[in-house]
Every structure is written in C-alpha cells, then in structure tokens.
Design a binder for these strands. Structure first.
Lengths: 254, 254
DNA sequence: GTTGACATTAACGCTACGTAAAGGTGTATA
DNA sequence: TATACACCTTTACGTAGCGTTAATGTCAAC
C-alpha cells in the first residue's frame, strides 16, 4: 500500500504540514518521490510514523525521537527514564503553580467580600509571596523548606503593630547602613549598630538566632545579585560593607 | 528611587532583555527616557513589574497579564479561574503522559529481561496502545470509558492463538470487503458475508453484541476520517460500502 | 478546456525571550 | 586628555513544532 501525504496524514490523524515538516527535519522521509515531485510513503514509513507519534504522545521532542529511532543501539530505556524525570519535574512545578493560583483566587475572593476590612493580611501574604518569588529558591536551598515555612508562618502571625515595627526596622537598617558606609569602617560604632539592627530585624522571621547563620546570610547578600541589589540601592558596595560589619559583629571574621 | 534597565533587572531578578521586551510589547513602559535615550524606571514601574512577575509565575501569558493590569475593570478573578482550569487540564494530560511513560518503561524492562519469552504480550499491548492513540478519544466519547477498558482487557486476555485468529479475521474482513465492493451491492451475498465476518471480528473485543452498536460503529467508520482511511485502503468508498452492508445486515437501514 | 481536488516550495507567524553585532554614553584613571 | 571599561541603545536572527497563506504545478473527471 502506498500513500500520498494526505492519505498518510488521514491515516495517522495528523496534518500534511506535519508530514512535510518531518521530511524537512529528516525524521520521516518518504519512500520515494514520484515524477511529479509528490511524496510517496510505503509500509515502512507508516510503521516509522507510528513510532514517531507514539513517542511524541509521550512528550518526547522530535530531536530525541530521531535519536531513538535512528540508532537501534541507542538506549531508549534510559532516554525514556530521563524523559520521565523531566515530566515529574514539570508535574511538581505545575502542582505548585496550581496551588498558588488557588491561593490567589481564594485571596481575591476574600478581598472582594471584605475589601475594607482586613487588607493587612493581604500585605503580609504579599510580602511572603514576593520573597518566595524573588529569593525562594536560594533561601530554601540554603536553609531548607522547614525553616522557610516557619519564617513565613511567623510573618503571618505578626500583629499589625509588629508588622509595621518590622517594616520600620527594615528601613532603619538601610538608614544606619548609609550613615555607616560614609565612615568607611565596618568595625566602627555606626556599622556595628547597623549590624545589630539587622539582627533585630531578623528576629521577626527567624525562629532562632545563631551567629553563624547571621554571617552566612550576610555572605549571601554579597554572592547573590538580587540580594546585593537590595542593599546596594543605598550605595554601590553597601552589601559588601554590611557583610563585613556583620562578620565582625558575629565574630566570624577570621 | 530611579532605576536604569540593569538596576531594575537586578532588583527583580530578570534580564535587561526582558525589560526591553516588556517595553516593546507595551506591558511595562519606562517612566521616562533621558536625554541619552536611556530607559528610566520609577517606583510605579517597580510595582507594576512586581505584579507582572507575580502573574507570570502563575503561568499567565503576557498578553493576559496586559489585559489584567491595563483595565482595572477587567475581571481578573474570572481570568485566574479560567487560567486554573487550563492548568488543571495540563495536569491531567501530564499525569496521563507520566502513566504512559511508566507503562512503556515497565514494558521495555520486561522485554529486556525476557526478550525471547513472551513478546506476544507486547504485541497485544501495542495493539491497544495504537488503538488508544488513534481512536481513543472518539471511542471513549461514544462508548464510555468502561466499555473501552473492558475491550482492552479482553484483548489482553486473549491467548496467542486467539490473537492470531483475530488478526486473520481482520484480514478476512478486508478481503471480503474488497470482493464485495466489486459487486457494488451492499445487500448481496458477498457484502453480507463481509458484514458477518466483521461481527465475528468484533466479538474479540466487544463484551456483548447489539445490532444497534454494530450499526453505530459502521456509521463512525464513515464519519471519522481516520476510521474511513482504514477501510478505504481497500478501495476509496469501501468504508461507506461496508457501512451500508452492515446497516442491511443489522436491519438498521430504515 | 475547465473545474476541483490534490500536490509542491517559500515564507511569515506564534511565545518569551537569549544572544550577538554595531555603535553611542558616562566616568574613572593614567 | 586619551583611553579603558562598564553601561546603554537598536536591529535582527534563533528557538519548537508546526498553522497558515500565497503562488504555482498535477491529475482525473466532466
């Protein structure tokens, strides 16, 4: 049995464009080209197409399918397992996404019915969301999920007063850092005051304080561009200055 | 506080290219352009970018984000819910995919360890997989999941002999159809024999036979391009001929 | 000979940017 | 003041897997 593009396309339930594209990228070439330039496919091509579509349904890329089909020695089992891992990653991502969308919907629905009442809860949630969005991966990698979840929970438990104190303290850290930076001395009184304010600020989110963790965080402020940007808005180099001050403050500067 | 592209990009943890792209598609325009043509962003733009990135993390397309942010009257809640539905669809798809990949891996692993023993099981599985891939949606829509699962199970329960009989019978249907088609008479003896063979062939997968279901299947052979292609490989128009023969055979031709 | 259903190649379009290339701007330093 | 260097600009191609015209050729039937 021989097939033209359209016949084969109908048989397989795909478009003729797809067949031409598969020819173009060399994943499925017709058995022959007739005198008019038409593509003619035979049984072997039908079988190969079946296989292509089978892997395609599994979400394997055409490039990978080409590898799998072209070399019989190719370890298709390994390829499939790697593919499964990627799919599982995507599933985890997707589940997270859905959870977030649900959270957002719930939040919005709440906001709509009580738009004038408890906006504050939204602010705290937003703070957490923003943090997660910007720093989530690094922080969770560094401190583990449990610590981060605890910190987020701690924020949600803050009263409005406490929350505003925390915000003020955050601003104080920046102000103190600016003053201290002008002195140029991370061991000086002003810089040590900034480091102390920073420790106090941490208390709002950290479950327990340790000098090592404090110093580690300071180092991260320097290593990660986005953290650095936050403190460098004071002055370029301020993040590094703060780190030095905290290293001295915590006695970790050896 | 004012930001150039790079400053804002660092703050937000994105690339400068992304900011220029957002400017280009009009989703985030800078507050102003300075005398040198530099983009300058202000606080309002930072806030807007936060929102953009928030929705982006939820997997919302930039076009939709634009709609959401540009018109405050836009029903963002509804948009989010629709978005969630799409995500849930993707999740179902993905779960199916993963299940299939797992099945394939298990099958391949089985094949590898007993490559010379029970290849036959693989053939039956392949038959089912191919059917599912090609006709699954239509058949399940028409007959329901339960009937299809039962049919698949029935195939898996076939002995090798039975399976080969079924294959032979399938070929007989095609051969009989070809002969009958030449007569041009769907009520003729040959055509009725083809219809009868077709009924016998169905017995291998159908749990119970009914004339109405048989006739309905025949109609689907005509209505769906891919089914039609299967029988039209005998002769163009063969699917329609078979349908007519079956309608007469089942007495549903009123 | 004309219609209509097929076939062909070439080319742009879609998403959300990454990645040069070619050139202007701003500032610190030799 | 010349230069180095980090920053900025626009333009434009590349990505995956096709969908979608557009312009044109082929084949069978009426």
């Amino acid at each position: 049995m021989e097939y033209t593009v359209q016949k084969l396309a109908q048989l397989a339930g795909i478009s003729t464009r797809t067949l031409r594209y598969y020819d173009e990228i060399g994943i499925l070439k017709p058995a022959r080209i007739n005198s008019s330039g038409y593509r003619i496919y035979g049984q072997a091509e039908v079988d190969r197409l079946q296989q292509i579509l089978f892997y395609r349904e599994l979400g394997v890329s055409l490039a990978s399918i080409k590898d799998i089909l072209n070399s019989p020695s190719f370890d298709s089992l390994k390829a499939l397992k790697e593919h499964r891992d990627r799919l599982l990653d995507r599933k985890r991502q997707l589940d997270l996404l859905i959870a977030n969308v649900n959270k957002t919907i719930a939040l919005k629905e709440g906001r709509i019915t009580m738009t004038d009442q408890e906006k504050f809860a939204g602010f705290k949630q937003k703070l957490i969301d923003d943090n997660e969005r910007k720093y989530g991966k690094e922080i969770r990698a560094k401190y583990g999920d449990e610590a981060v979840n605890k910190a987020n929970q701690k924020i949600l438990n803050l009263t409005e007063e406490q929350y505003q104190e925390m915000q003020k303290l955050g601003a104080s850290v920046l102000a103190a850092l600016k003053e201290a930076y002008a002195t140029g001395d991370p061991a000086g009184e002003l810089a040590q005051k900034a480091a102390d304010l920073h420790r106090q600020w941490l208390a709002y989110t950290w479950d327990s304080y340790s000098k090592a963790a404090h110093a580690g965080l300071a180092q991260m402020y320097v290593d990660d561009a986005r953290f650095r940007a936050y403190y460098d808005q004071v002055q370029p180099g301020a993040a590094e200055f703060l780190r030095d001050a905290i290293l001295i403050y915590t006695g970790m500067n050896k």
